[in-house]
Design a binder for these strands. Sequence first.
RNA 1: GUCCCCUUCGUCUAGCCUGGUCCAGGACACCGGCCUUUCACGCCGGCGACACGGGUUCGAAUCCCGUAGGGGACGCCA
Length: 461
Amino acid sequence: MSVRARFAPSNTGYLHMGNTRTALFNFLFARNQKGTFILRVEDTDQQRSEDRYTEAIIDALQWLNMEPDEGPIFQTDRFDTYGEKIDQLLEEGKAYKCFCTPEELEAQRQEAQEAGRKPKYSGEWRDRTDHPDDQPFVVRIKMPLEGTITVKDLVQGEVTVNVEELDDFIIRRSDGTPTYNFVVVVDDVDMDISHVIRGSDHLNNTFRQIPVYRALGQQPPTFAHLPLIDGLSKRKGSASVQDYRDLGFLPEAVVNYLSRLGWSHGDQELFSMDELTSLFGFDSVGRSPSTFDEDKFRWVNSEWMKRLELSDLAERWVPFLKDRGFDVEVDDNLIAITDLMRERADTLVALTDESTYFFSDDFEYNEKAVKKWLSPDLKPAVEALADRLQSLEEWNSDAIGTLYRELGKEFDLGLAKLAQPTRIGLTGSTSSPSVFDLVATFSRDEVVVRLQKVIDELLTE
RNA sequence: GUCCCCUUCGUCUAGCCUGGUCCAGGACACCGGCCUUUCACGCCGGCGACACGGGUUCGAAUCCCGUAGGGGACGCCA
């Protein structure tokens, strides 16, 4: 039997990292088993469902390279099916009409709570036949009256609960719409889902859903309830996939980092999607919840920035540069800059922040740096530097390095005395890549112009 | 309140099933050093955990029981 796994988010919000991890594990398992990965949108919440969220979810999965093999399937397209199934259960006596009002139920819940009992429906209408004609009603499913229900879970192991914990829950509201715990089961049956992989907040639902499978005459699928992730909501608003994309994280890093929340493979930290799909299995999924750690996420991202093909990284960088108003495209120069800068940043945004001076000379000189490294007595040396750079035969790092050393000797200056003023002139501060590489990455004219500006503005009294 | 689940360094985790090789390994973060024309990167080193209490056993992070703490679920939401 082939594996069919589904990711079933509701379209009431953007795709958050917790959900993304669930999607990822479904995807990885399906791929690992040569099965099918399906997207189903649970859009039955009339109030909060929105198309733009559906689009965002699809867009996010695409970006992460986790496109579904089937779907999206929408539950709102399937209301007729749900209605038929409920009618069928009603006819078979496996479900019944309940005429209690929400107020009555609320009162009962309160009472039970206070008495220290589990707040559950009494089953009052389960066997009553004195149905009023003109009252609104809901449909409830009959839960077994005695015994236990056991979930065999790939992550949690066997979990058993006494049926006394369960009540006859509503499967059709008084407005005629079906409820979640019912439609999931109908959908999973119709979609021939073999493995239900979701957050462990659904573990308790599973005990309700298993009797539904049975009422429908179906075998429940295999379940895998993943431990939850803490610390997501606290992240001030930036918790959706596209938020992290905008922050300059790479999809490879999102996938890599998320895979390690709850799953592991020995001491290995870095995984490509291919490695993940071949290594993934529920044997290596832990049971305890984890915390989202942005520091480590950034580290994983920085590793991916170093691993990507240079031109690929440059290409992905361009949109961020354009966002800042720098009209660039991928060419040899941008690739050289990427090469020089990428190991100094952990996100594409950080990379942009660190690199602005390559694209604009509109920056302030760092005051402390100027004070420490620039004094008028350096003027002749810097003038000579600009001059000799202007006429240097070859424009590359080695040749430039040689020139700096020569000048150092001639003027009897340490390398720093020439290097730091150069940095200040080119970048505004003293932190940058190797000066020789730095200089070589700029055009000769640009270097001379910026050096001249230093001479005029900072070395001339 | 009731039920379910969880508990190894600050964080992610290896080890646990198949007790000894674990005075517990790796990674992030942090601290120190090296490299060096600066800042990073990199390299080297350091700090740092088996929640607690009972058992079982020659021996327990590993098995059993209990306690505490944390999370989840208890909707005419999904």
